[in-house]
């Protein structure tokens, strides 16, 4: 009963781009459900690219990261793209340590915080 979700997800879709805006703590309690949600977005017939916006994510652990890896692999199989954008500093550090920052986060013009 302690597993009350401390995270939220909201989806906006336009022209094949599905943006999943996440907030809160993406951890073991969130991982399974998040992966299901991302897979469903990737499998939506109209989607071309699915972007998880991490602006509001305060914590990411290895299980949460596993959900992103699962979504990335699923997108690859389905011929779609999966990307992460706007990680805050603590989340960015986890992505860097795992060596996936450059894989998941598209480089942006004017991104000088590297």
């Amino acid at each position: 009963m302690s597993d009350i979700p401390l995270w939220t997800a909201a989806v906006t879709a336009r022209d094949g781009t599905h943006v999943v805006t996440l907030t809160g703590e993406i951890d073991l309690a969130a991982a399974d459900q998040l992966l299901d949600l991302l897979r469903a977005e990737i499998d939506t017939p109209a989607s071309v690219v699915v972007i998880a916006d991490l602006t509001g994510v305060t914590f990411l652990d290895s299980a949460g990261l596993g959900a992103f890896v699962g979504a990335y692999n699923h997108a690859g199989l389905a011929g779609r793209r999966f990307q992460l954008v706007n990680p805050g500093r603590p989340v960015k550090r986890i992505l860097e340590i795992s060596g996936v920052y450059d894989v998941f986060v598209p480089s942006q013009a004017g991104d000088d915080d590297r």
Partner: peptide, 9 residues
């Protein structure tokens, strides 16, 4: 460091 294990491709 390189990416973690388990990525496709």
């Amino acid at each position: 460091r390189d990416p973690l294990l388990g990525l496709r491709a």
